[in-house]
Amino acid sequence: MEAGPCELREESGLEAEGLRCALVLDVKDSDTGRFRIEIFLFPMGRVRGELQTREDGREPVFVPMAELSHLRLTPHIAATLSDIRRLHARDLDDDTPETTAVYGL
């Protein structure tokens, strides 16, 4: 998990305390037909910085966890992400946002 904070900063412009890996997926990109690795991280504390676009055509946005099920995520992982967050709820501190960043909406 040492690379997590660096990847988060490089990919999104954000810094977060206590990152935990939620899941890792090998996803086929529908535009290019190529596979890419998607890593989902949960902060266990404060998130600082300003969300920035670092990839062409993939605009990151913060989405409340309760609204994930309304998005067309590929693969369909909204319920999985919500379940994983619930599993870690007792470890979250008061500054942890009830949102997740989603790319490519």
Rank of each mutant, 00 (worst) to 15 (best):
M65V: 13
A66I: 12
H70Q: 12
L14H: 05
Q52S: 15
G45V: 02
E7M: 13
S30E: 11
P43C: 02
A22R: 00
E7G: 08
P97C: 06
G33F: 07
H70V: 11
E10M: 11
P75L: 04
A79L: 05
P43Q: 00
T74K: 15
P64V: 05
A101T: 14
D26C: 10
S82D: 07
G57R: 13
G104I: 04
L8P: 01
D26Y: 10
S82N: 14
P97W: 05
S12Y: 07
G13M: 05
E11G: 12
E38D: 09
S12D: 04
L25R: 15
V24M: 01
L19H: 02
T96V: 08
P64D: 04
G57E: 06
I77W: 00
I37W: 02
R85H: 11
I77D: 00
E11P: 00
P75T: 13
R34E: 10
L92D: 05
E7H: 12
L73M: 14
C21R: 10
A22E: 00
R46N: 03
F42R: 01
D56F: 04
T53R: 15
T32R: 03
P60G: 10
M44T: 13
F35S: 14
L51T: 13
F62Y: 07
T74D: 10
A78H: 05
L73D: 08
R58C: 15
G104S: 06
R20D: 00
D26T: 12
H70R: 14
D83W: 03
S69G: 15
D91T: 13
L25M: 13
E38K: 15
V61W: 06
E67M: 15
G18H: 02
S12M: 11
G4L: 13
R72Y: 13
G13R: 09
V47G: 03
S30M: 09
L105W: 11
L23T: 11
G4D: 07
R36Q: 14
T100G: 07
E2M: 05
D56E: 11
H70N: 12
T100I: 14
E7Y: 13
D91K: 11
R34I: 03
E2T: 14
P64S: 04
S12W: 06
E38G: 07
V63K: 03
A3Q: 14
L41H: 00
G4R: 07
C21L: 11
I37S: 07
I77P: 01
V24E: 02
R48A: 04
T96M: 01
